[in-house]
Design a protein around this nucleic acid. Sequence first.
DNA 1: CTGGGGACGGGGCCC
DNA 2: AGGGCCCCGTCCCCA
Length: 339
Amino acid sequence: MMDYSMCPLKKRPVIIEENLDSVKEESPLVIAEEDDPQPENLSLKDMSNPEEKPKPKLWTPHTMIEPKSPLEPVNMNTSAFTPWGTGAASFPTAFSPYLPFNFPVAPNYSWARNPEPYPIYQPLSPSRASPTERIGSADSDYPLRLQASLRSREDLYYTRPTSISPNSRASSSEAEDLSTTKIRKTSARYQCPECNKSYSTYCGLTKHQEFHCSSINKKQFSCKNCDKVYVSLGALKMHIRTHTLPCKCDLCGKAFSRPWLLQGHLRTHTGEKPFQCSHCTRSFADRSNLRAHQQTHSDVKRYSCKTCSKTFSRMSLLTKHEDGVCPGLAVMHMGMPQH
DNA sequence: CTGGGGACGGGGCCC
DNA sequence: AGGGCCCCGTCCCCA
């Protein structure tokens, strides 16, 4: 739905999306489905609602608990060890061999796995890990290295906890990875099935798969409100802001995806034009527009038509030219040799 | 049709 | 990780 009425200064239509509230109101704790691995908690800062509190981090590794059978919930009051030495875990979390790595268990936590032979995790001295194995900032927080010995190939999936640990020590990136990714282990350490690189932490592996490995496992983040697909969560978050438009103009109500866009818009109300042309007295509210303007002072126009050699100050003018009015292109379209 | 201004989106970089 | 900022590009409008 196009609406030109909101801002008298605007030339562009404002797209008003229906049902966009769902973008902001989706629960961050929805269980990750295999066929729907996209993140639910995008933690967009909604500037139109400044009272919204940032969400706490979700969980942290604490203690190891050995469940008696693969499908039996772990006993949360039984701890085999605590990674940071003495001192009881302040929250009844658990490390379970049925879970992908030291995975906390909250009281109303639910979990699932396939009923195949499972890995045995053993504590590994930090000194045995080479510096190159320390991947990412989350790894530096890792108090304990774990080695998993698999009895057979196994697939481990998790479901998200339905509670939040108040004493979380996990890094936010690790928590994010947990909250967004189905976990799969295929080797003793955290190994990429595509390139066989191994990582000492789950976080290291997921970062590798997400950003560096050109495997089919490379994460793709797609927008649920349009067809856009991004390779990073950050890019998707940025894009979703174009749907939620959290930055609203108090004067005309027009909304923007980013604060600095709103800043630029406010200049259309105030008339402020801080970007002055060094060649003439004109000034502009937008730096890009100043740059485009300064092209008009230049004798050499940057954009030239490859067919007729006509030059233009802006790419958009060249595109328009090539799309319709270039005589050379018209000749080419009539079947003349293209040289 | 052309040239230019206004407004804004996306990616990337830096802090 | 997230926000601010810059750059590039695009779209729309108007003279």
